[in-house]
């Protein structure tokens, strides 16, 4: 167990193992995404109220779910980096932020596109949309803080503190936004809230969620590999790698 932990802290080992994982995870992800998208968009029945426009949930819901989970992945990596001073946890945390921000952005855009035919407007200050917007701000704050530091090691630690503060705050923010929404809006334009979803629609959705998690992992690993190379650029093993030796 401990030797595994130590290996995790070693950049060349992590670089190699991430490459190995990617070699099979990436094709699986692409296949799963293709199957999920085709299944969801072509082979499910249209919704009896929303018609075909509901199909955007096959992008929107997975993106939103993984975006939120991504923040927790980032916070856990941040905690590991602060507690055990593991540099590779820093790398993981730093690599999470732009992916999470992109997913949050996708969730917001698809939500907005979905809103146009459903509510007749591009933007509604609905509790979930507002929460997603705040999540985007949280991600961008981490990215901005990281970029502001010249010393990247300090940047990693500072971002780790910020993500941990964010992790404590996210439930509070979500709850208070929910509360705020229920205070101001009678539940007239409630979203999918208590409507049930038919299994024929649910299965492709679950597949899409799973493949978005896989996609997140792929992006994270690729991002981490790039970051490891950048940080270790002056070390022997990276030079060897760049010169074309197989390690």
């Amino acid at each position: 167990m401990w030797s595994f932990f130590h290996k995790l802290g070693s950049p060349p080992w992590l670089y190699r193992i991430a490459g190995t994982i990617l070699r099979w995870l990436l094709p699986v992800t692409i296949v799963a995404l293709c199957v999920g998208v085709t299944w969801g968009l072509l082979y499910t029945a249209p919704d009896f109220r929303q018609g075909n426009s509901y199909r955007i949930i096959y992008i929107h819901v997975p993106a939103a779910a993984v975006a939120l989970a991504g923040y927790y992945v980032m916070a856990i990596a941040g905690a590991v980096s602060l507690i055990w001073k593991m540099k590779m946890a820093d790398v993981a945390m730093k690599s999470c932020a732009p992916i999470g921000a992109a997913l949050t952005f996708i969730a917001l855009v698809t939500g907005s596109i979905w809103g146009k035919p459903t509510w007749g407007t591009w933007w509604v200050w609905d509790a979930r949309i507002t929460s997603m917007l705040i999540l985007l701000f949280l991600y961008l704050g981490v990215v901005a803080l990281y970029e502001a530091y010249d010393n990247k090691e300090a940047a990693g630690k500072a971002c780790a503190v910020l993500t941990l503060v964010g992790m404590v705050n996210i439930p509070i923010i979500y709850k208070s936004v929910d509360w705020w929404y229920s205070l101001h809006q009678p539940a007239s334009i409630k979203m999918t809230g208590d409507t049930t979803i038919d299994p024929s629609m649910l299965y492709p959705l679950l597949l899409m969620i799973a493949s978005f998690y896989a996609l997140f992992t792929c992006c994270l690993l690729m991002n981490m590999r790039a970051e490891i190379l950048e940080r270790e650029a002056r070390t022997g093993w990276v030079k060897k790698l760049a010169l074309g030796y197989r390690s």
């Binding site: 705040i134 701000f137 923010i173 208070s176 936004v177």
Partner: peptide, 10 residues
């Protein structure tokens, strides 16, 4: 402001 405004919202 970028960092802490989200935490001010609640």
């Amino acid at each position: 402001s970028l960092l802490i405004l989200p935490f001010y919202m609640p």
